[in-house]
Amino acid sequence: MTVAVVTFGGSNCDRDAVRALSHLGIDAERVWHEDGLPADTEGVVLPGGFSYGDYLRAGAMAARTPVMAEVRECADEGVPVLGVCNGAQIGCEAGLTDGAFTTNRSARFQCEHVHLRVERADTPWTAAYDEGDVVEVPIAHGEGRFETRDDRLAELEAADRVLFRYCDADGNVTDAANPNGSAGNVAGLLGARETVAVMMPHPERATLPDVGGTDGQGVLRAFA
């Protein structure tokens, strides 16, 4: 399998993603967005960073680049697609998932470790966990607050499309454990297909044993 890690101007987590995937024995390569996806692409990562300097809105410009039409085609065909941080913002802007990611409740950039509760364990992204497991991964964002209409959030919850929620170390989903004010404490969610997911925390930064722990490995193992 070749996982294409799509690099835009301003991406800065693409190398991290490649190294984390390679550590898990998954073939991955950085792909400059203007070059399009390789013919043998069997997985796609939209990495973190600040594509196009977050002008207009975070992810808005990258979501409208030609390569995203290819990414949407891959998603429609069941190819695993994961958007992380800025990649999650791009994914929402491109219509891969519902909602939007906006300015943190604190109105500040936040870089810290957080706890996530696994809401489903029957998806490719969470098959390595049990439902209700608590994992610790880092966040690093200024616009990570997930927002959608209350009725749409209820629909997403009813359809079991919420993948991770911010929680405390004991798995309690509380406002105090919500680092950015996300609606419903949502930290990650699925697209129309379970092979498509976006999440604001960084699983690639919790994959290498000597750097940030290994709790994020399970998410990336979906590509294997």
Score class of each variant (00 low, 15 high):
residue 25 G to T: 14
residue 9 G to Y: 05
residue 206 A to H: 10
residue 14 D to W: 09
residue 56 L to W: 08
residue 22 S to K: 15
residue 63 A to V: 03
residue 74 C to A: 03
residue 137 V to C: 01
residue 47 P to C: 01
residue 144 G to T: 01
residue 128 A to E: 09
residue 5 V to T: 11
residue 173 V to L: 04
residue 105 R to Y: 00
residue 116 L to P: 08
residue 208 L to A: 10
residue 55 Y to A: 14
residue 71 V to E: 04
residue 82 L to I: 15
residue 89 Q to M: 11
residue 105 R to S: 00
residue 46 L to T: 02
residue 115 H to S: 08
residue 2 T to L: 12
residue 92 C to N: 02
residue 188 G to P: 07
residue 67 V to H: 07
residue 91 G to C: 14
residue 49 G to V: 03
residue 74 C to G: 02
residue 107 A to I: 00
residue 73 E to M: 09
residue 151 D to Y: 15
residue 78 G to D: 10
residue 130 D to I: 11
residue 17 A to D: 09
residue 73 E to N: 08
residue 59 G to W: 05
residue 124 P to I: 05
residue 115 H to F: 09
residue 167 C to E: 03
residue 210 D to P: 09
residue 197 A to E: 04
residue 153 L to I: 08
residue 135 V to W: 07
residue 109 F to R: 05
residue 50 F to W: 03
residue 67 V to D: 00
residue 193 R to P: 13
residue 213 G to W: 11
residue 102 T to N: 01
residue 79 V to H: 01
residue 181 G to P: 03
residue 161 R to Y: 06
residue 39 A to G: 11
residue 40 D to Q: 12
residue 4 A to H: 14
residue 43 G to Y: 01
residue 195 T to L: 14
residue 30 R to Y: 11
residue 97 T to P: 15
residue 39 A to D: 15
residue 48 G to W: 05
residue 103 T to P: 07
residue 137 V to I: 05
residue 80 P to T: 06
residue 40 D to I: 10
residue 117 R to P: 06
residue 109 F to Y: 06
residue 207 T to Y: 05
residue 171 G to Q: 09
residue 81 V to R: 04
residue 88 A to L: 08
residue 53 G to N: 07
residue 155 E to N: 05
residue 48 G to Y: 04
residue 82 L to N: 08
residue 219 V to A: 04
residue 157 E to I: 07
residue 126 T to I: 14
residue 86 N to R: 10
residue 151 D to V: 11
residue 30 R to S: 02
residue 148 T to L: 11
residue 94 A to Q: 04
residue 52 Y to A: 04
residue 196 V to E: 03
residue 123 T to H: 13
residue 182 S to G: 08
residue 183 A to W: 01
residue 3 V to T: 15
residue 181 G to D: 01
residue 140 A to P: 00
residue 85 C to I: 12
residue 18 V to F: 11
residue 34 E to A: 15
residue 47 P to F: 01
residue 195 T to N: 10
residue 191 G to H: 15
residue 48 G to N: 06
residue 127 A to S: 13
residue 46 L to W: 10
residue 13 C to Q: 03
residue 148 T to Y: 07
residue 80 P to S: 02
residue 20 A to Q: 13
residue 195 T to F: 13
residue 36 G to N: 12
residue 39 A to T: 14
residue 223 F to E: 09
residue 58 A to G: 11
residue 19 R to K: 13
residue 41 T to P: 04
residue 42 E to F: 05
residue 118 V to T: 09
residue 207 T to D: 08
residue 200 M to N: 00
residue 85 C to N: 13
residue 120 R to Y: 04
residue 82 L to D: 06
residue 14 D to C: 02
residue 186 V to H: 00
residue 169 A to I: 04
